[in-house]
Design a protein around this nucleic acid. Structure first.
Lengths: 358, 358
DNA sequence: CTAAAATGTGTAACCGGTTACATGTGGTAG
DNA sequence: CTACCACATGTAACCGGTTACACATTTTAG
């Protein structure tokens, strides 16, 4: 564990550390012979430049953060892997974080950008109200939001980017499909209503209802709010929190279906809620799709093998990951400019969890 | 984006940067009044210490790496989240990486430890033959292996730890259960045979067969080798690779069941192969559990809702994650010592994908 | 043949903290 | 009253690189 330094390489080769540095970074002029000798010495001694020193000297780390709420969602996993691969191609590392819906963790990671440990960050985890985040944006740190928006920065030159799936269209697709099958009482199981995304999601729902001449009934939208605030207050960590969400979902779904028995179709917005919803349905003795049609968000490899095979609205997660990473790197490496937006389309994948209203 | 430095805080408060540093790190003596003034100044100016500088000065980063092959496995996701939570409690950050079975990526991340960017690392991704990894271990860098072993370091003082599920027992449980149901021709779908884990997995299989007086037939073990080497050669990245594995699994399973039609039960070792196996079974028109009993490894939230509900051998993933993180932090913060081993037990969760041999 | 441009290399300042050591106070034990 | 110690703070070396600048040598162009 003896640390080899550039100084030692320099001594060994009989040059100055400046020349060693030039060789490492492949900039400036270095004679081919000298370069070869330096590289040989580096290889022989197993030298690797100290990253902390480089970071300090250059003011960059070539590391970016990815802050997500959870990885228990195949869409996020796909996105994560896509982001990582793209970043790698561009020479960046990824520091990852799941907040588990804990806002404190979000804030801590934001600080990492300000403390110079991260060159930028990609996130879907930020509540719009977070003033910390606004501050970061204002201070011109490169940030890409996934499926989130941030008001009040329009037209301003910042280093902010947005990659979004068309959430409104996603719920529209699901709702329209169900309405087309004759369903009128279409329930929605969703999460934290505070998020800016909820408006767009519900917008698509209402749009589809309206187009079909169905009246919107707010009672049909049920939010299971195991959100960051509760999680923080309860001091809950990952596994506990996951269970809490599951239990809450089972209970909420049960109550919902009992209270509004004429619901004939259900849209499940968050993948993490799906097992809970399925369990509640099973416990109540209702059967999909005979007694209840079901559409979930995000496709996943096991969806065709569920009982019944699940109809879903799929997100272009991998593509979103690539775009987000591309965008962030551009923001890091270029001067600030008005925010970029990328909007990708969801897709309805019909399997067998919905059937026409009798 | 004006950077505030400790120097400025010092000037503002009328003290030296040493005192500011003492305040930040809460060590040495600082007068309570002075401390209060410094903290106020830091808050007012929104000061955050530069991490690169701290890393350079202290020789530590409080960041550790987690290198996994993929996140498309709920067990890994659970483990990842557990690791992250534990590390966070202890004041460490997590730099994550999915290798996508690409050995080059593994090696790159190993270098990050040697280059001082990471204080240590947790990994399950390393092929035993990797000389790079041995070198790292020999050089006393803190490393925790998950479900991997490394020969030749027994008794030596290193900073190495091992967290393993009892793989042999896991396959034993599955095999014994199936044999107990009367199955004699029990197939195994697995992955890369090069990995040290395969011996232990097959060990449990053979042990259970022997105990039941069933002869071992090597033809019943089928490896689908979409491994790192192939992936690297083909230059494949994440999504392509995932598809490649899926296609290869479908084809291999189909061939396997056609070639050996008297296989009445199947054990699927890798979760990532499960959709492919299920698809092949479906394509062949065989039905689970009537025509074929099935046991998979790793439980997952959707398992009870598959058709049929899936019997699995569950890993204690969350616990493994906690242990691994604890162990790594201990290795980082304490002098080297003989390698620690933690062995956790798997658990058979019986659902409805197996039935007695007719 | 000479001036300008390109090539090659070293010196030293700098990145922004941490920390060993020196210095100086005031309180307390002997 | 003196010696010693706890407390408080500053000075400056150091962590290990990067890079602007100066200087020397070689090419190239006119």
């Amino acid at each position: 564990m003896t640390k080899i330094t550039a100084r030692q390489i320099a001594a060994q080769t009989g040059v100055s550390i400046a020349t060693v540095s030039r060789t490492i970074n492949n900039n400036g002029y270095v004679h081919a012979d000298v370069r070869a000798r330096i590289e040989a010495a580096m290889r022989d001694l197993g030298y690797l430049p100290n990253q902390a020193a480089r970071n300090l000297a250059t003011g960059r780390t070539r590391t970016v953060g990815l802050v997500l709420q959870t990885l228990h969602s195949p869409a996020f996993v796909d996105m994560t892997e896509a982001i990582q691969m793209t970043l790698r191609e561009k020479g960046y590392f990824l520091l990852m974080c799941n907040t588990q819906f804990n806002q404190q963790i979000e804030t801590d990671y934001l600080r990492l950008v300000q403390s110079g440990m991260l060159d930028g960050m990609i996130t879907n985890a930020i509540n719009d109200t977070a003033t910390e985040m606004r501050q970061l944006v204002q201070q011109n740190y490169p940030i890409v939001f996934i499926n989130r928006s941030l008001s009040g920065i329009e037209g301003q030159p910042t280093r902010t980017g947005f990659v979004q799936m068309d959430l409104q269209h996603a719920t529209f697709l699901a709702t329209d499909y169900l309405a087309g099958l004759g369903h009128r009482r279409i329930g929605v199981m969703t999460g934290d209503m505070q998020l800016s995304t909820q408006q767009r999601r519900l917008g698509g729902y209402r749009e589809a209802l309206q187009a079909r001449g169905i009246e919107f009934d707010p009672l049909l939208v049920r939010a299971v709010a195991v959100n960051r605030h509760e999680a923080v207050e309860a001091g809950q960590l990952a596994p506990k929190n996951a269970n809490a969400l599951h239990e809450a979902t089972v209970q909420a779904t049960g109550e919902f279906l009992t209270a509004i028995p004429d619901v004939s179709a259900l849209i499940v917005i968050y993948h993490t809620m799906l097992p809970g919803v399925l369990q509640a349905i099973r416990q109540m003795g209702r059967r999909v799709p005979h007694d209840l049609s079901l559409i979930a968000f995000s496709d996943f490899p096991m969806a065709p093998f569920l009982d019944p095979p699940l109809t879903v609205v799929a997100q272009p997660s991998t593509e979103m990951g690539h775009k987000a990473a591309d965008m962030l790197v551009a923001l890091i490496e270029q001067p600030s400019q008005p925010a970029q937006h990328v909007l990708l389309k969801p897709e309805l994948i019909v399997r067998q969890s919905c059937k026409p209203y009798p």
